[in-house]
Design a binder for these strands. Structure first.
Lengths: 345, 345
DNA sequence: TGCTCATTTGGTTCCGGTACCATTTTCGTT
DNA sequence: AACGAAAATGGTACCGGAACCAAATGAGCA
């Protein structure tokens, strides 16, 4: 054995290592190594052990790109808007946890709510040929929709559960109902002049549905809704504070405000403290999301509880179920919600 | 032209579309199509236009897996701990934005701080042969370190900037200095019995450094540090509240608490409100992170401002610079910090 | 002992963009 | 007109698992 280039030494750079190399070292066919990686049960225990030992010794990490190219990819892609100041981080965490549990990796692409940005994000995603995709909100661009459909991969839209025609599967809550329920809840507690604050609604079907739910409740209550009782602000605590100031300035007699996000509501609560206003004595505050801080807030925040983490998990679960070959239906999964009645309203 | 299978129709499923197919339709070589995709300048404008038109018409989305297999991949991978309740979401947003700007995609893998989990995460990441990697915190497992090095890809650790030997590049702040500075700041404002609250420290070098900085300041101030002045709680608002109760029960004369996270500090502030304690009259509260809500909080939160978003961006920038062929140095980038003195302390 | 069927293993080809090198076309120069 | 260099384009092999099918080995049973 001349110590030529055939030094059979280990620790080659990851680059030059593949099933072929491992196979050579063990004395089996590349195919056998491949099977140990993806279908261990098809390989005799003794052979399997030898292969695994060689893999371990060589520090071999199978190239998932190659697997993916042959259609057995284990990556799911997702498009989400900003992770900052919203429940999206929770949702992504849920997706990630469930992916990991299922042996999948997650590609995260940032997306905006404009049709062009959306199309771009989806193109980027599709470039990686993911086994499945999860999209935040309904797809608006027809081109993007077409691309998704022709990709053949299963898609879950996490969105308002009613409305536009879904591409494939949908997971979400009825934003209409949540907002309707909260508005009715506030009314039931005796509030009569209820304002509505949200982040910019344009192009966001979930927010649109919430506002519609708020309107529906008002009209059912026989309350005429004024546009002046609604404000759009950026999704920051400062935005919430600003909205509170704006609405209470406009309407001295406003007695409750429903914020479309806890972040906004919490900001408003702080503004009340600054002004020495009693909550809910001077004004009642309700939020949306039930983020961690909501229950700990002083006073505890009345809010709509929607489990974003669970939504993320469910979305991935739907995808993995489909990929595992189970039912081919374009299911719509509606997660429940809960009006959490605390002391702020 | 018999309308056999050669119907030259468009809209084949994404599956069957490739540079070869596009090339055939345009009447050029596959290589030319490839060049249009990655080196447009090498193709004559007229040819380029024809190819682009065909790509557009066919709805062709180039397969990035194939590119990656030939070494021109445009994916960067990252391992981060939970996105919930921490500055990590901001950091990931920063990474994502910078990746997108540079034409890269981001693979997100969840990681824990144990060596085994870490190794597993890194293996998962390496399986996708990313062009570069960003890791939260220093790598502890020797095996993982070895794998990373032999992968040949550039690595950025976002971490405490001093301490363990980095693998390649490092971006971060000196957690020691931030905590030291805040503790001194509190002392300068006249507080003498300063508690320290953090999330579980074990295996987290950043938190270790912060505690060490706190200790160093105390010792420089001639204050003996008692273990009973320190508490570890989960990273939730409730945890902060709980820590406040614990410390004030143990030490009636405690006059300030430095929380290693704004989330905790905000929870503690709420607990003070519940108890009717004046801040900072009864007790001063300081946080870490300067999250959005900190400035809006009542009272506004004194905290350590570290720009996590920027840290994420910088980390990716380092990677992209390296990939673009610029300098090969194992740089250490230290981002500044700021003691934001507000009214809570 | 001969034969069938299940288990285990091997050989070959493919996925699709691109590195590498060869070839042709286009121009500027003398 | 002739020639060399630059620009544009083409041909082919390759990255590395895995699908597909063939072959070999072993077990079960008449």
């Amino acid at each position: 054995m001349t110590a030529e280039d055939e030094d059979s030494g280990r620790k080659k750079p990851l680059e030059r290592l593949g099933v072929r190399e491992i196979a050579k070292r063990v004395g089996v066919a590349p195919m056998t190594v491949s099977r140990v990686l993806s279908n261990p049960d098809m390989v005799a225990p003794a052979t399997r052990a030898k292969v695994l030992a060689a893999i371990e010794a060589a520090g071999f990490v199978p190239n998932r790109l190659a697997s993916s190219m042959r259609g057995s990819g284990r990556m799911i892609g997702t498009v989400v808007p900003s992770l900052i100041n919203s429940g999206i981080a929770d949702q992504v965490q849920g997706m990630s946890d469930e992916c990991q549990a299922g042996g999948y990796s997650m590609l995260l692409v940032q997306g905006e709510f404009t049709p062009e940005a959306e199309e771009h994000s989806i193109r980027t995603l599709l470039g990686w040929r993911p086994a499945g995709m999860i999209l935040q909100s309904f797809v608006q661009s027809e081109v993007a929709r077409q691309l998704l459909v022709s990709s053949g991969a299963p898609v879950v839209e996490i969105s308002e559960i009613k409305g536009r025609k879904p591409i494939d599967m949908v997971v979400g809550v009825s934003n209409f109902e949540t907002a309707y329920a909260m508005t009715m809840h506030l009314a039931a507690k005796g509030y009569e002049r209820i304002g509505f604050v949200s982040t910019p609604i344009h192009g966001n079907d979930r927010l649109q549905q919430r506002r519609t739910g708020y309107h529906a409740a008002l009209s059912e209550l026989g309350i005429k809704n004024h546009a002046s009782m609604e404000v759009e602000v950026p999704i920051t605590a400062a935005g919430g504070a600003q909205a509170l100031v704006l609405l209470t300035d406009r309407h001295k007699d406003i007695d409750a405000i429903f914020f479309s996000s806890d972040t906004l509501a919490i900001g408003a609560v702080q503004e009340c403290h600054r002004r020495g206003w009693a909550i809910p004595g001077r004004i009642a505050i309700a939020g949306y999301g039930d983020m961690d801080l909501a229950a700990q807030l002083f006073p505890p925040l009345t809010t709509v509880k929607v489990n974003r983490y669970e939504m993320g998990r469910r979305a991935v679960r739907q995808l993995l179920d489909r990929l595992a070959g189970n039912l081919k239906l374009a299911t719509i999964t509606s997660l429940g919600f809960e009006i959490v009645d605390r002391e702020s309203a």
